[in-house]
Design a protein around this nucleic acid. Structure first.
Lengths: 182, 182
DNA sequence: CCTACCGATCGGTAGG
DNA sequence: CCTACCGATCGGTAGG
């Protein structure tokens, strides 16, 4: 699974052959099928495992409660933590989910919509109580989610670009922009 | 070229076959080779044409001069305009450049680095003159570029999500976060 | 622009 | 876990 995530990240799902994967784990291609049933199954595992990490994370944030500002802050941290914990598989998750088979794709898109709805609800409550500037919550949501997506593209665990500093920059840039100035 | 950009966007470069493309333009696969020399050539065309649009854009911003704030504002608009003008090919450009052959890939990465350096220089001048908060310019740069990237993922020309409103949200969120508060 | 076709490679199976 | 192999499909060429 680790080797597959690395290959999917580097070459993409379609450009990764089962022979590539077999070579990475020092087996013959046919031997892989003693461990998995198909190439799709690997992709499904990567995509749904990571989707669960985000959903578990947002459930904890909702349960913890607190102000909308504190909740958004916690969600920014969630994204940073999830990426920091396993950059490789998150990159594959972010970029390759569209290669899921129709049925799995549907289910995946549903999970993502669920996540987005819950994130959006928190933004809305912050607008409602005056913490955040009014604005199209969809635009806000996607701008935030997208700027959090870059982290995987850039974050190199070995280089240790100081996770704390990343956190500070992201909080500063996004939270300040969100906050109501009056 | 349009049909190819659409297929690359929807299925990815590797998962798009020349037969897919041929069908989209009502030809036999072999007939495509009277117009292009290889599948790679199409990808190269898409990637470098769009790279040029950004480079031309930033050259104009540099030439126009003005305050760092005005320049960053103009760059945000550049990204929004480039996407609005041709969402399809920008998506392929954003997501599929990594499938370029080694030589073209090198050249492409150089162009991108050039663009990033020039964007970063503008951020730096804004920090130097106190307009922007101090911070790791790399982190700032990538957070900004990344949040601009989502637009292609979401922007549907037909739905007309009011380009003006997108502009306002992006400016508000990113420029307010950048600005020095004192 | 087409038909016909090339060698290479694909995901996966049979059988041991 | 391997060898041997399947039918399908790939990017691309020959020749008209």
């Amino acid at each position: 699974m680790e080797a597959a995530a690395r290959l999917f990240r580097d070459k993409g799902y379609s450009a990764t052959s089962m022979r590539d994967l077999a070579q990475a784990v020092h087996l013959q291609a046919s031997s892989l099928y003693n461990h998995i049933s198909s190439k799709q199954e690997i992709l499904r595992d990567i995509c749904f495992r990571n989707a669960q990490r985000y959903l578990t994370g947002i459930a904890a944030v909702e349960k913890a409660g607190g102000t909308p500002l504190a909740q958004v802050e916690a969600l920014l941290d969630l994204h940073l933590d999830v990426v920091a914990e396993d950059v490789t598989s998150i990159t594959a998750f972010n970029d390759e989910w569209r290669h899921l088979d129709p049925q799995a794709l549907d289910e995946f898109v549903q999970l993502r919509k669920d996540y987005e709805n819950r994130f959006r609800a928190i933004l809305q409550s912050g607008i409602a109580d005056g913490t955040f500037k009014a604005g199209d919550t969809n635009l806000l949501l996607f701008t935030i989610l997208s700027s959090l997506r870059w982290v995987h593209d850039w974050y190199k665990p070995d280089r240790k670009p100081q996770l704390k500093q990343v956190r500070q920059t992201v909080h500063q840039l996004l939270l300040e922009g969100l906050k109501n100035s009056h």
